[in-house]
């Protein structure tokens, strides 16, 4: 356990607690950024350089920005009170505590851990690129297909609907039922 682990681990836990417990959704999004940066630091501390930078690019640069944009797009003006459903923390805390007992019990009872026999060789970005283009080329192509499908699907879902469009959709400008 290194000082870096304590620093970044602290960032991760504090940021996650803030992201889940703060009242203002935008503050939650910014607290999430702290968690992602802490995780990127933990990856760097573990020796996964490229993964740490990818974490910053993908999560801080894309996912967190997207989250904040959607928060701003879906503001109604009237306060969404209360932010937590009635009894929500009780139920969520109960389920999470049960999972915690299972996970921590399993982790604490690990035995017979074999240390690495030979010293670790850290792959460079070049090694990773070569591996992606040779051994992992099929998964890489499949991920490309998945990302394309997700992008098209997200655009279709988020596009404004046309009048007389698909059945069961609310025309624009009308108040939805209920």
């Amino acid at each position: 356990m290194t000082p870096w682990f304590l620093l970044f681990g602290g960032l991760v836990v504090v940021g996650a607690l803030g992201a889940m417990a703060l009242r203002n959704p935008v503050h939650c999004g910014l607290s999430l950024v702290v968690t992602f940066v802490g995780l990127a630091g933990t990856y760097l501390d573990l020796g996964a350089d490229f993964l740490g930078l990818a974490q910053i690019l993908v999560y801080v640069g894309a996912v967190a920005i997207l989250l904040v944009f959607v928060m701003l797009l879906t503001r109604t003006g009237r306060g969404e009170s209360p932010e937590v459903r009635p009894g929500g923390w009780w139920w969520g805390g109960l389920v999470a505590a049960l999972v915690a007992v299972g996970l921590v019990g399993a982790l604490a009872s690990v035995s017979g851990w074999k240390p690495r026999s030979e010293p670790m060789t850290f792959p460079t970005v070049r090694d990773l690129g070569v591996a992606l283009m040779t051994d992992f080329v099929l998964p890489l192509q499949l991920v490309g297909v998945v990302l394309t499908a997700a992008m098209i699907g997200a655009a279709i879902l988020a596009l404004p609907e046309r009048r007389g469009g698909r059945v069961g959709r609310t025309p624009k400008g009308e108040e939805p039922e209920q």
Binding site: V13, M20, P25, V70, E83, W91, G92, G93, A100, L107
Partner: peptide
């Protein structure tokens, strides 16, 4: 093990929040 405990803590916090928050984004 320290990293796995950190991952477990993160998972538990996320799960409690996902079950408790009313805002779909959160």
């Amino acid at each position: 093990q320290p990293y796995l405990f950190l991952a477990a803590a993160l998972f538990i916090i996320g799960m409690a929040g996902a079950l408790a928050r009313r805002n779909a984004i959160l």
